[in-house]
Nucleic acid binder design. Structure first.
Ligand SMILES: [Zn+2]
Length: 266
DNA sequence: CGCATTTGACCCGCGC
DNA sequence: GCGCGGGTCAAATGCG
């Protein structure tokens, strides 16, 4: 199957060395396809990580500076973590004028849309559809003042993990080596809805992030891949640049460190 | 044909 | 009780 995607430099001498150039061209085209796919995957990953990063950010902010009055300890404690059960978190996800489908690693089914009193933009209601009986809902609405921001309100705890990102060429080996040692996440994710408030950790997002985005050793794989591609690809520099900026971002590293620490604590 | 989205109807709590 | 505002249902519609 041929397409019009021209590969530079292979136009003139097509008659001779045809097989060789054909082979090279095919190889290059395959590589290009693979790179495109990988790029798409990375883009999705970046989106997911970004949204989860903002989730963690808001969570961190809420837990760091509560309206701390020296009133009474019990009241303060109780009000400090009101989201252990319902986990109501607002997340800012920037988006221009696309549809309200925010990619955060889960799969949502829209079930309603209403206009609200003080916001001209409508509010969309989603339900998590990755697992049957998952009670998680979320509301997405544009911010009233800044039209480019989306405010998502998550509510509930997932009873499953996220295997959303098109990770196909991953972990051929390293299957379940230690099923009951530290894989509490697995057990938790497979657990149906039973007494969520007792066992579930404060947020299910941590588990999802640790599982979906970083299966095992996260950074080395990315960096090595980028470096290996860096010899001949030009897009890789952008990716590397972006990754570098992401790593340079203190917020991101902070949230990442927090997440890793919490994951290790489990 | 099997899905997800759309969209008006419906429900329910709350303040008057 | 009534109106209102937010949340959900479900029939209709769209889409691959
Ligand atoms: Zn879910």
């Amino acid at each position: 199957m041929f397409s019009f995607m021209d590969v530079p430099g292979s136009h003139e001498k097509e008659t001779e060395m045809s097989s060789n150039t054909f082979g090279q061209e095919k190889i290059l085209r395959d590589e290009l396809k693979r790179l495109r796919k990988e790029n798409e995957t990375l883009k999705v990953m970046v989106e997911v990580i970004g949204s989860k990063c903002s989730i963690l950010e808001t969570h961190l902010r809420e837990s760091h500076c509560p309206p701390y009055h020296h009133d009474s300890n019990k009241r303060a404690r109780l009000e400090e973590f009101p989201f252990t059960k319902s986990s109501k978190i607002c997340v800012k996800v920037d988006e221009e004028d696309k549809s309200l489908v925010v990619r955060d690693g889960y799969q949502w089914r829209k079930y309603g849309q209403k206009v609200t009193k003080d916001n001209p933009s409508p509010r969309a209601y989603y339900r998590c559809s990755m697992a049957p009986g998952c009670p998680v809902k979320k509301k997405v609405q544009r911010s009233a003042e800044d039209r480019t921001l989306l405010v998502a309100t998550y509510e509930g705890l997932h009873n499953h993990g996220t295997v959303d990102v098109p990770n196909r060429d991953r972990l051929p080996l390293h299957s379940d080596q230690s099923p009951r040692g530290q894989l509490v996440n697995r057990d938790l994710t497979l657990m149906p809805t039973m007494s969520p408030s007792s066992i579930q950790p404060p947020i299910a997002l941590d588990l999802s992030l640790s599982r979906s985005s970083f299966p095992q050793d996260p950074k080395p794989s990315y960096l090595s891949k980028n470096l290996s591609f860096g010899n001949r690809s030009s897009d890789c520099t952008k990716i590397e640049e972006y990754a570098a900026s992401l790593v340079r971002d203190p917020k991101f590293t902070e949230a990442l460190a927090l997440t890793v620490a919490r994951t290790l604590n489990n």
